[in-house]
Design a protein around this nucleic acid. Structure first.
Lengths: 332, 332
DNA sequence: GAATGCAATCGTAACGTTACGATTCAAAAA
DNA sequence: TTTTTGAATCGTAACGTTACGATTGCATTC
């Protein structure tokens, strides 16, 4: 309701002094500071974001570029704790969090360029990293603070927070092999993504160790939805040499697979061994024996914001790179 | 990178003319408009949000106040499609969507007041309506455009988008009664919420019609998590006169209940009939016979933004109130 | 040929904030 | 007394935008 000018008039002070008093400027008398702060609280003064932003160039907003797979289907559930972690941390740090959704039709590079040009954000969180991701160079060149969720292969250092997908997929595959599975199916999301590439790599490493040859037909791509997962797994189970182990991409992939098993009268944990990624603790509640790799996605979201925040405060500071490990819990 | 002044200098025009040209002002020559737009595109001019906001008072941002139940547990999954619907619609309408998370510690009224004072948003989406919600009056008095997700009992009209919880709970209870259940348990979320009140009302109406007396011990509150749902349902099943029907609050409540059934060796759809709300189509993929009421939450999110958008454009226009029906699918 | 009208363009102020360089005034130093 | 110091406060410009009221110049009218 009130602005600095009105506040200054009420106190018979200059705008400058009031402005300085509110941020404890050393050049203004302590008693004046107290008087100003009192009045500010009384009239409910809050600084105008846009005046501030225009003058200082700091927008007090960070933007998360949020990729959606499809328009109609449910997204990967890990995004919910991720968003919640981000929003809470952002609020705590005094930032607004703006979510910029992109559909598969959007060019990811162009989305970032638009954010850069609009200059209406102090920092960017980008996800869905691809090999040699051009967005990193773009952001580095523009001097825009950012963090990525996921990594890419570049020689220049940049801040990221990632989940150790290689390790998780390795362990998952390893567990299945240890359970006696020789034909192990693997679900992947966006194949060109770094995350999927890492999972594939961990899968291959575990298979190599177990002396199991790789069968491309057991590797499924684009498992975004329960439907696609179910269709793929059904096809696989109907093949001459069906899998006896399955590493699911996430909760949705798992549910799709369980759906098919139920229809075919097969028992998870007996006919087919299953291990899944699960960021929602949902799989653990299913009445079936399923190995679960969980990652603290709310923590990832929080960390993304915190790293970005430090990056904004000190753009030339150390480049933080943080890796979240998965925690494994065998099925009950 | 460029601003109006630079653009004007490059074109040897005044800032005024350039500004007008960019918004097709009738007073500037068509050929000039073309020339200006050309140059703008060439140098990648994008208007500065904060200059614009400061001058016009329009921030081009809308804010969704997003209530979280707990810090550690997974939130109601319906929030994911809700958020996605909102972000997409906001972007389409040329608005940024800012998410303002609140924890149970936050006073909801104060959260709204803060948004009002900060004046950094063009409109507000609030949820979790309670009886006689004071926020509505607050926002009406302040003249801040808003939409609520959910309703409250007030004599002044205000725009809302809601789900017909009464009808859904009525139908769910009705189905269970039709299946022969006489003891029907009901899960509720926030008891003081209007949404829960409506569900309770629908539940009571169906029971009254079926001639079944109401047993308060069958009504569970605070079923936010799979854990609380499981604990509650387990206690219920261990009681002398256990329920034979269950209406779940959402997917998480369902999974908690299924977990308990599995542990006790009971079969859903046989020993206990189950109907649930499901906004993620997740329940339909579970290998169990479960009746499902689904609501298009992405549509709700989209609609919230669209109504708000119209409200902002025309604050004195008709007050829109929209009710989403649930769609029922019996278990396979 | 002067006056009128109209289309096109321009200059300036203002939104609320911060930052820089004054300016004031009393107390300490000369 | 005069000068210097320093603390406290003030005035003004600027960030990028829009909106209002000029101003220009050319064709039309009397």
């Amino acid at each position: 309701m009130a602005n600095l000018k009105q506040l200054a008039a009420e106190l018979s002070l200059s705008v400058t002094t009031v402005s300085r008093a509110l941020k404890d400027g050393p050049e203004v008398h302590p008693s004046t500071i107290a008087r100003v702060k009192d009045a500010a609280k009384r009239v409910g003064y809050l600084p105008n974001h846009h005046g501030y932003a225009l003058k200082t160039g700091r927008t007090l907003t960070i933007t998360a570029v949020y990729p959606m797979e499809t328009q109609d289907h449910l997204s990967d559930l890990l995004k919910l704790p991720l968003i919640e972690g981000m929003t809470l941390a952002a609020r705590q740090a005094g930032y607004s969090l703006s979510i910029y959704s992109t559909t598969p039709d959007d060019d990811p590079v162009e989305s970032v360029q638009r954010q850069l040009q609009a200059r209406s954000t102090d920092g960017l969180i980008i996800t869905r990293m691809v090999s040699g991701d051009p967005r990193v160079k773009l952001l580095l060149d523009a001097g825009m603070p950012f963090v990525t969720f996921g990594r890419t292969n570049l020689d220049t250092p940049y801040p990221y927070v990632d989940v150790d997908n290689e390790q998780i997929a390795y362990e998952a595959t390893r567990r299945l092999a240890d359970s006696g599975c020789r034909r192990i199916a693997l679900q992947l999301l966006v194949p060109e993504d770094q995350a999927s590439a890492m999972r594939l790599s961990g899968y291959q490493r575990a298979l190599a160790e177990a002396g199991i040859p790789i069968d491309q037909s057991l590797i499924g791509h684009g498992m975004f939805t329960m439907e696609s997962s179910a269709a793929w797994f059904d096809r696989l189970l109907g093949s001459p040499d069906p899998p006896t182990g399955l590493a699911c991409a996430n909760e949705l992939g798992l549910l799709g697979a369980l759906h098919v098993l139920g229809k075919r009268g097969l028992a998870p944990g007996k006919d087919v061994h299953i291990v899944t990624r699960d960021s929602t603790r949902l799989a653990r509640f299913l009445p079936a024996k399923i190995g679960v790799h969980s990652v603290d996605m709310a923590g990832v979201g929080r960390t993304l914001v915190e790293v970005l925040e430090r990056r904004i405060a000190n753009p030339l500071g150390p480049v933080e790179t943080i890796l979240f490990k998965g925690e494994f819990e065998p099925g009950e």
